[in-house]
Design a protein around this nucleic acid. Structure first.
Lengths: 264, 264
DNA sequence: CGTAAAACGATCAACGTCAATCACAAAGCG
DNA sequence: CGCTTTGTGATTGACGTTGATCGTTTTACG
């Protein structure tokens, strides 16, 4: 049985039953436990399921199903790096704090690691809000606006919003790119939404994998001087790393090998 | 049985019954009391239930009681009547229109019948927004605020909100009760949220089954004069029906027998 | 108010599951 | 053909989960 066949079978069973057991999969596929574990690890890295002791469950298990359509695509690229970065970011969170998460695949991975936290979380991502409401004790606040189908982002062209009363110590932001010009997005509405969120936070912590330190996109969300910390992976160019530090930006390197240790 | 399976089962029973006993869970799951206790402890840690001596109760019960106590439970009571009312309400919707749906089980049923519509929908219900984004072509707008876990209602104590720019021809509202005093809710925050939504709509269409024409609750959302139409079932008292019509309120009677025909 | 029963948290040994590592086989490529 | 790459299965020690037992606390009831 091919690897793809097994993984498809796993996902199908997950859809039907919401949860799968490793031992059952061994019986069904005929593959060894080691192989099935590797399959599950890959599927988890790409955000298509969540592993639990003894098997795996659907990422949207329990509540009403929620899997943003194109969301999955964004998750697949560099998923292991993003997982590591998300794990590192989650370590900075303490119970009782107020934080902001923008819409992005890295912040979504991070949200999955906040299950045992008790914080106030503001997010403009519908899937992240869903995840936190259903599976954690965190209080969840969302801005007003239209819910865009593609990625489940909540966007509004207006300034009035209930979140004007929100105050956060940290904002964790996953973005399109980062250059000496500042933090970059490709969509004007998204950039605007993130700038609005950012105005409610004290420290800005950027989460981005090392493939994004290149000039692209066109909308500057904020200058580098606004950035307090950058969490990235070992692939960050040395020049960029030193430039950031010379500007007073803290640079944290997340080790993909350690990511699993701090997993929820 | 996997740990997550048990925990999911516990939460489901809590949704249905509001309270669970450890001894019952032992009988159902086949696990030992120690294991069940550990499960309950974990679920309490993540805020998904509250432990009491002998078992656990839903976090919603005891707290402020929202319109849809545990959503699932509220859906089941008079579900056939609500389905009929929801079906009748959906007939009033036309593509291109802008409508508002408040958080409630009847409006949730209605949302399920809007899959083939193309409208602009404003709702303060997280599950309804989820349903429409995932399974319909409607544009979805939500107000800003905190997402309350119990029923997935989005509430905010502040006036500023992006929805101030929303304009709807109709608001479909499921409420706690209806009396000569007006449209009634039991929770002040919920009443406030609905009043805010209502200010963005031209016509107000009330969806409520005939068991709710009694004096209860304490918060008046709006007077009867604000109501344009009431959609209910044949069980509505004749006196109430005539009183409403004498005040210029249109009364539509949904036939539960016809409900199946227009089901999605 | 006092006693018995039930429920509770803590502890521990047994077991299942996990990640890491190794060796092997098949496929891709120069 | 030899080499690397990729997928696979078995082994191992570490870790998480489980159920039984203990002494303690809470509840129920006379």
């Amino acid at each position: 049985m091919l690897e793809r066949e097994r993984q498809q079978l796993i996902l199908n069973r997950l859809k039907e039953r919401g949860i799968v057991r490793v031992t059952d999969l061994v019986a069904v596929t005929g593959a060894s436990v080691a192989t099935l574990r590797r399959d599950l690890a890959k599927l988890e890295d790409t955000g298509q399921l969540r592993r639990v002791h003894g098997g795996a469950e659907s990422v949207a298990s329990g509540q009403t199903e929620l899997t943003a359509p194109t969301f999955g695509a964004s998750q697949t690229t560099n998923a292991d790096l993003k997982q590591a970065i998300a794990a590192r970011a989650a370590l900075l969170c303490e119970d009782g704090a107020s934080i902001i998460l923008n819409a992005g695949s890295t912040t979504w991975f991070m949200a999955q690691r906040l299950r045992s936290h008790r914080m106030q979380v503001l997010t403009n991502s519908f899937p992240i809000a869903q995840e936190l409401v259903a599976h954690s004790a965190n209080r969840v606040v969302v801005p007003g606006g239209e819910v865009y189908r593609e990625a489940g982002i909540i966007l509004s062209p207006f300034d009035e919003d209930a979140i004007q009363h929100f105050a956060a110590s940290m904002m964790f932001m996953s973005c399109y790119a980062m250059t000496p010009m500042g933090v970059i997005e490709s969509d004007p509405l998204v950039a605007r939404a993130e700038a609005k969120l950012l105005s409610r936070a004290e420290k800005l912590i950027i989460l981005l994998d090392s493939t994004k330190f290149e000039a692209r996109g066109n909308m500057v969300v904020c200058p580098l001087s606004r950035v307090h910390t950058v969490i990235t992976d070992p692939g960050i160019p040395r020049a960029m790393r030193e430039q950031l530090r010379s500007q007073g930006v803290e640079v944290l390197i997340a080790d993909p090998a350690e990511a699993k240790l701090s997993a929820a």
